[in-house]
C-alpha cells in the first residue's frame, strides 16, 4: 500500500506541482518528477554526496530526505547556478582548474561548496579539506577542487562580495 499524495516543491525559484509516493526520496523526485537531472544519485544511502543540494540554504543529501519533507522549503539545485549562458563563477573555476574529470560528482561538490561557503566564508586549509571530504570523487580530483575553491574565494574577496 503506497501512500501517494499531492505535493508542491519550490526548486530554483520555480514551482513544481507533483504527485508521488511518500517513500520517494527528494533526489528521485527532483530528477523524475521535476525533470531536473543535474542532481545525480550515486550510492542512494547518504555516503557519496553526489546528490547534495541546498534546502533553505543548507547543503544536504537529497537521498536522505523524503520529498514530502521538503514541502514549503526553498530548494536549490545545480541547474539554478548559471545565469542564462553565464556559468556560476565556481562552475567556471572548476573548468579552469580541471576540478572535474568524469563530472559525475561535480553537481554535488558545487552545491556542497556553495552552501558551506555561505555559512563560513574563507575556510582554513584544514577546514576546506574536511569539507570536501564530505563527498566522493572517484577520479580523485580533490587537489584541483581545492584549487578551484581557492581561486573562487580569492575572486570573491577581491570583489568585496560576502
Amino acid at each position: 500500500m503506497d501512500d501517494r499524495r499531492d505535493l508542491t516543491l519550490h526548486i530554483n525559484g520555480q514551482r513544481h506541482d507533483i504527485r508521488l509516493a511518500a517513500r520517494k526520496t527528494l533526489a528521485d523526485a527532483i530528477r523524475e518528477d521535476c525533470g531536473l537531472t543535474g542532481t545525480h544519485t550515486g550510492c542512494e544511502h547518504g555516503v557519496c554526496g553526489a546528490c547534495t543540494i541546498l534546502v533553505d540554504g543548507d547543503p544536504v543529501r537529497s537521498c536522505l530526505m523524503f520529498a514530502v519533507q521538503a514541502e514549503g522549503r526553498d530548494i536549490r539545485t545545480v541547474e539554478g547556478l548559471a545565469e542564462r549562458d553565464n556559468l556560476h563563477p565556481l562552475q567556471q573555476a572548476f573548468i579552469d582548474h580541471h576540478a572535474l574529470q568524469c563530472g559525475f560528482c561535480t553537481p554535488g561538490f558545487l552545491m556542497l561548496i556553495i552552501g558551506a561557503l555561505a555559512r563560513e566564508p574563507d575556510p582554513s586549509e584544514a577546514a576546506l579539506v574536511d569539507l570536501i571530504a564530505s563527498n566522493m570523487c572517484r577520479c580523485t580530483g580533490y587537489k584541483n577542487i581545492i584549487e578551484a575553491v581557492r581561486w573562487f574565494e580569492g575572486r570573491r574577496s577581491e570583489k568585496g562580495e560576502s
Binding site: 547518504g46 554526496g49 544536504v60 536522505l64 564530505s134
Partner: peptide, 8 residues
C-alpha cells in the same frame, strides 16, 4: 560524519 549530515 560530514557537514551535510551534521546539518540534518
Amino acid at each position: 560524519a560530514h557537514l551535510p549530515i551534521r546539518l540534518r
